[in-house]
Design a binder for these strands. Structure first.
Lengths: 350, 350
DNA sequence: TTGTAGGCGTTATCAA
DNA sequence: TTGATAACGCCTACAA
């Protein structure tokens, strides 16, 4: 039932030439062959439906033309956009991306890295789970082309494409102050091991002190679980109770999931933005747009966000990887893909 | 800078044994070695941070322990759920899934299949773009374990895990009739090359004739582009105009994107369900649930859907592939993952 | 318990 | 233009 795989030897035999000749034909050196040989090889290949083994070739040449893409969580819209960008960035380079999911587990991430590397991928694009993966540093230092996406690794300067996370936070804080908000509270998931969240939090703390004269981490940072609606609601109520009636308060979420969770919780509590509470945060998914807040017919007016552009990040990362593959010793790079502010109704007090 | 890769030979030399011995150690036959040898090999491996080359191993053994997963469009929530299910289904089998995106292009799908196969994946899970890919049939018939997901291939019975698409449609039509609707109009994307859509459409036509006595394909099937809101609105208006005032009409969308597009268009037109038009269709993403229609606090009442369960489909497909890998000659299987009806307000006339 | 030798399917280096 | 031949890194009879 299972036909034996046809190899270069079979073709050589069928065409009556040596495998060297066949190999030359396969690798685009057909012009080096005599017309006679070329035709016979061509025909033999067609007849047998021969396809060279990439495995054997990889073993010999040490090149696979595969790019391993490791995603912290392939399940998120963020990853989805990333994939689009990566695919487009890799499209004309001759490399094929294969995607793998770390499922938010550093251990899984390392297993995957291991298998990808041992299968000889020519480069790695990684949106890491851990923010602190020594194996990644090892790999990069041992000559494997590695480009990080979005999330950095502490204490090491690998190639990376990310977004400026500090500035948008500061801009937002300024905007809130301008609008007349007297207090801002940060809602965040645990931010350890996650550089964007951590950077946003730190920027928030600094801006909160500078602009609002607040230096209490405990008071204005709420760590919540977006999957626990009750918990979020409790946190919101608490904020309301600890804010003087005459002071306008705004909520700033550090990541998109949390922003959505806070939004839902406010809806459930019957709270309106900005009347009861201002609301803003990052949008990594084009979420606000998709939900209709930028459509002309949208009446609600929507929530203020700053949009990151994961698709472009993926694209840039792919391009960077390509140059890195060609020039392994070039100096490491850090590229920033700009974000755009979308000031909407939820923070408009005036 | 780039350290040479350490191979089994290096370890053998360092440990003062033959590479056979090292190989045995690597492959779990360590108990066959003398204590002395084992320890020296162990230490040598650790010291050198040696990792066997999966490529060389694959070439020799013809096994890669890789499963290629080809997704018609990795970007959809459907694919996202699939990935979760596949990962869980493969978790304990010793096989690693690598995901590739066909980006809705049959040509790309074939390129990807080619590279995966030539890299010796041990099996293929494919949610095909084309519904008509001869290469897939070739592969399956030539001994490559292949399991289709959701979408069939015409005229061939490959292994497949999918959902019953005909019955839910009929159930829905019955439900609509029971509720007092006098007319049902199908909204669909082009359904060629897409088995679920095609099956739903055919089931619709049959039920429409049987239950409502209608046999006009032209009148009650609207092919629309979900990405063109205007076009959808025009189609809806047209349906309204061609429906007698006293007759209740319902819209049935063949796939989730179209359902959402129709829903949005109705909102934009200021139409309410079921007052102005009934509305229902499939939900492949847990979309309705996520949007809050199943939450206790939901007031709107939501849209009637039948939910497919892509995660389970992925899981089942992975399991099936595993057995197929172990037993290539077993008879081909067709597994159906049940869908669940969610009757909500949008079709409740009584 | 260990080692030798051959081969997996290619490409690359020679020499012819 | 062509073809032996030796790798690439590993596994596996077969022998010892």
């Amino acid at each position: 039932m299972t036909p034996k795989k046809v190899t270069i030897n079979d073709i050589a035999a069928a065409a009556g030439v040596s495998k060297t000749t066949v190999s030359r034909y396969i690798n685009g050196h057909g012009d080096m062959l005599s017309d006679a040989s070329r035709k016979r090889v061509e025909k033999a290949i067609q007849l047998a439906d021969y396809r060279p083994s990439a495995v054997a070739r990889s073993l010999k040449t040490q090149k696979s033309y595969l790019v391993g893409v490791v995603l912290a969580n392939i399940t998120t819209p963020f990853a989805t956009s990333l994939i689009n960008g990566i695919s487009s960035g890799l499209a004309d380079g001759g490399y094929v991306p294969i995607f793998a999911d770390a499922a938010d587990s550093p251990a899984t991430e390392n297993r995957i890295l291991q298998t990808l590397v041992s299968h000889q991928v020519d480069g790695l694009l990684v949106n890491t789970t851990s923010g602190d993966n020594p194996r990644l540093v090892e790999l990069a230092n041992s000559g494997m082309p590695v480009v990080l996406i979005d999330r950095t690794i502490r204490h090491y300067d690998l190639d990376i494409v990310t977004a400026p996370y500090s500035k948008p936070t500061v801009d937002l804080m300024n905007h809130l102050k301008d609008q007349g908000f007297g207090r801002v509270v940060l809602f965040t998931q645990p931010f350890e091991n996650n550089s964007p969240r951590e950077i946003r939090r730190n920027a928030f703390l600094a801006a909160n002190e500078e602009l609002f004269g607040v230096d209490s981490t405990l008071r204005d940072v709420r760590v919540v679980d977006p999957l626990d609606p009750q918990g979020v609601q409790v946190a919101i109520r608490d904020v309301l109770q600890t804010t003087p009636a005459e002071e306008h308060c705004a909520l700033y979420a550090t990541n998109t999931i949390t922003l959505i969770a806070v939004y839902n919780a406010m809806c459930a509590l019957g709270l309106r933005a900005p009347g009861d509470l201002g609301l803003c945060g990052p949008d990594d998914w084009g979420w606000a747009h998709r939900i209709g807040w930028d459509w002309p017919e949208s009446l609600a007016g929507g929530i203020t966000t700053f949009e990151t552009d994961p698709s472009t990040m993926g694209h840039e990362a792919a391009r960077l990887l390509l140059t890195r593959i060609q020039n392994p010793s070039q100096v490491r790079e850090k590229r920033y893909v700009p974000v755009t502010m979308r000031l909407r109704a939820s923070t408009r007090l005036g």
